[in-house]
């Protein structure tokens, strides 16, 4: 079993073009429903990969496979393999808890815990024993808040409840909470769909900055957003991966008819 420390101390991979996450023939069934059909996709490190497609196309389902959140849905069944640094995350002896520490997640609706801002960010490091002292922990919390671009706004009220922040601030708090665990991959499930345009712009800016240190996979229903923040884009339709490529190429010169139709707004 690969422990977290081993994989962390492997910066050499960044140079070579080795995929961080690889999906091989991934199928998902919800009961009788075949929700994801034979998806093959490689996600590169330190890039933002956008998953787009009409609603119900399986993009969120695929995202949730990468940190096995689908395990939680009753009746869901996943076949095929997904590897993280060449290790299959659906291996029997892989600890799903450790997986989720390495693959963080930001949800559609901001979901801070009904606790203080500080405790929200500190929860992950405490959970995984990442800080040795109170001072250590405080440093982690502050750095994470800074990286999420939220520190300046909340530094005087760290002990106030996180639920009292505005929607955009809450979502950035959730991002700070996710990066406080220093994951390798961050999954974002339509992180801006509940936010106003100004807050959206801030989060998008943040995503672009985070690319430096993290591998990001983002599901979005807005093509403009995909174009703005991502380097690679994958287009899903009715549970199938139709096309994947550089964002620029997908948006300017899509190869597949369905992609073309979706991009130009003929359906979706």
């Amino acid at each position: 079993m690969t422990t977290a420390s081993e994989s962390q101390s492997r910066p050499g991979d960044q140079g070579i073009n080795v995929a961080k996450v690889t999906a091989n023939d991934v199928n998902v069934y919800y009961g009788d429903k075949h929700a994801l059909k034979g998806v093959n996709l490689a996600i590169q490190a330190n890039e933002v990969t956008a998953l787009i497609g009409p609603s119900g196309c399986g993009k969120s389902t695929f995202l949730r496979c990468i940190n096995r959140m689908n395990d939680l849905i009753e009746g869901a069944r996943v076949t095929g393999t997904i590897t993280l640094d060449r290790q299959n995350i659906y291996d029997r002896d892989l600890d799903v808890v450790q997986l989720r520490a390495r693959v963080g997640m930001v949800f559609q609706k901001p979901n801070p815990f009904p606790k203080s801002i500080y405790d929200n960010v500190a929860y992950g490091p405490r959970l995984h024993g990442l800080a040795h002292s109170a001072a250590d922990l405080e440093e982690v919390v502050i750095t994470s808040l800074e990286r999420a671009g939220l520190y300046a706004e909340v530094k005087d009220r760290l002990d106030e409840p996180g639920t009292g922040l505005s929607g955009g601030q809450q979502q950035r708090l959730c991002i700070a909470r996710a990066i406080a665990v220093s994951p390798e991959v961050i999954l974002m499930d339509e992180p801006c769909s509940a936010l106003d345009p100004i807050a959206t712009a801030k989060v998008e800016e943040l995503i672009d900055e985070l690319r430096e240190n993290f591998t990001i996979v983002i599901v979005t229903h807005s093509m403009q957003q995909a174009a703005r923040v991502s380097q690679r884009t994958a287009f899903f339709h009715l549970g199938e991966l139709i096309e994947v490529g550089n964002t620029e190429q997908i948006f300017t010169n899509p190869q597949h008819k369905l992609t073309q139709g979706y991009i130009t707004g003929r359906f979706g």
Partner: peptide
């Protein structure tokens, strides 16, 4: 020791 992540679980 000093590296908490070398343990599988919290102490």
């Amino acid at each position: 020791g000093t590296e908490a992540r070398s343990l599988h679980s919290l102490p």
